[in-house]
Design a protein around this nucleic acid. Sequence first.
DNA 1: GGCATACTGTGTATCGCGTTCATAGTTTCA
DNA 2: TGAAACTATGAACGCGATACACAGTATGCC
Lengths: 249, 249
Amino acid sequence: MAEEWSFPSVLERMWGREPTTRRGPRPRLDLPTITAAAIEIADAEGIGGVSMASVASRVGVATTALYRYIDSKEDLLTAMADAVAPLPPDPEGMHWRDYLALWTRAQRDILLQHSWLLAISANVPPMGPRRLLWLDRALAALEGTGLDEGERVNVASSLTGFALTDASLIHNVLGDSQLDKAGLKGASDYGEALAAVLDPADYPALSAAVGAGVFSGVVGWVDDGDFLFGLNLLLDGVEQLIARRRAGT
Amino acid sequence: MAEEWSFPSVLERMWGREPTTRRGPRPRLDLPTITAAAIEIADAEGIGGVSMASVASRVGVATTALYRYIDSKEDLLTAMADAVAPLPPDPEGMHWRDYLALWTRAQRDILLQHSWLLAISANVPPMGPRRLLWLDRALAALEGTGLDEGERVNVASSLTGFALTDASLIHNVLGDSQLDKAGLKGASDYGEALAAVLDPADYPALSAAVGAGVFSGVVGWVDDGDFLFGLNLLLDGVEQLIARRRAGT
DNA sequence: GGCATACTGTGTATCGCGTTCATAGTTTCA
DNA sequence: TGAAACTATGAACGCGATACACAGTATGCC
């Protein structure tokens, strides 16, 4: 029944529950210090620069010392993903739609500022204190809308997913290295590249879009308008659902 | 101007443009053979089982022989991601909403059947023949709705993103290994785990949702209804936009 | 027909990274 | 004071991606 749970040690530490031990030397590190160092490296050099060795050397210990605090590198990444998130904005007094728009944009911006997150997300269900706080605030904003608990969670999930999608799109098209890696020198080349490769007979609709210049130039392709476009698609859907619930269906 | 483009060699091969050379021994392999082998391994053992060595041994050549066909492992992954996609369904004669629902679900199912895709996506803008064909069909289905080319692309992107989000969610909660790795034995434990860790004072709305049983049990948490929920959120938004365009705004 | 050429597959080698293990040192409790 | 519990370390292992030089093989030109 109410047995004592055994979380993975990283999770315990993420929630501040350091092991309650008294013997032995004082630990020289703690999880926040380690994740902070790892995040700094990832921000500066990308996720590729994050190795056990690089993190350890940055905090001034031997490589293997890190294993006293985390069980594996993947655990480190999990901890990083939670720790980068700042505190969510306060929904107090805001209309749900305004807050969720703000909330979603903020999430997207976090992903863009720390684009290495894109390579990590799609990992574990969120279990860290920060990410759960974000979820909590979204649910709070939806109180009083007539949606039930499950629906609120679904709305929040959809918006989080959208933020991730949008950030991923922007990163891939404007991104630092990806496009060079694909042999494209800039975003505007994406349209050209498509045109060079598509046979209008096999790809009629897509060719038309390319011909219309949809993919040409950074501005026409991904800009803030596109974010709002998708966001409002979702929020319109939510609004309609709320109206339906209010109408008693 | 119309210069000869130099794509990365993998892209050339993905589009069937093998180098037009005649000298030397006949290549024993081709890109489709390699990607097929890699996909089989990934399906069977997960993405972790895919190494240059394992793929090479499966097709019966030395490890380094693969580098005659691809420049790097990442290129192999790119090719795999395009090659797993089957041909998209035909929108001929279908209402745009029905088709897009089908189209999105099919994409999600692909991601679930080859869940290693989740670890790869968020990579490069789609440049392969299969993925572009999917995009083309979605755009075709939106012809005659009054949306302009850019809007159609945005709709398709949003739906693709949603499919990815939903698949990712399902995979993480019901997934094969992830949950064990997180120390949770099954999906129903997610709710329990949250309850064990949350302080209702700090996470009031989320605690309420947990208390309502939203996260308890597989059925209540992610099922087909949730997919339809998010999908219809988006499609309702699209429908509203189309109506607005028709009304002349 | 023969020879240079361009191309193919292989074996060897290197480098970096994650992780394990035995060890030496350090602090607290009995 | 001594034992127990815990810490950080260095060396070592295994694996995986990739570079390189080499040997073999088919084509095109003379």
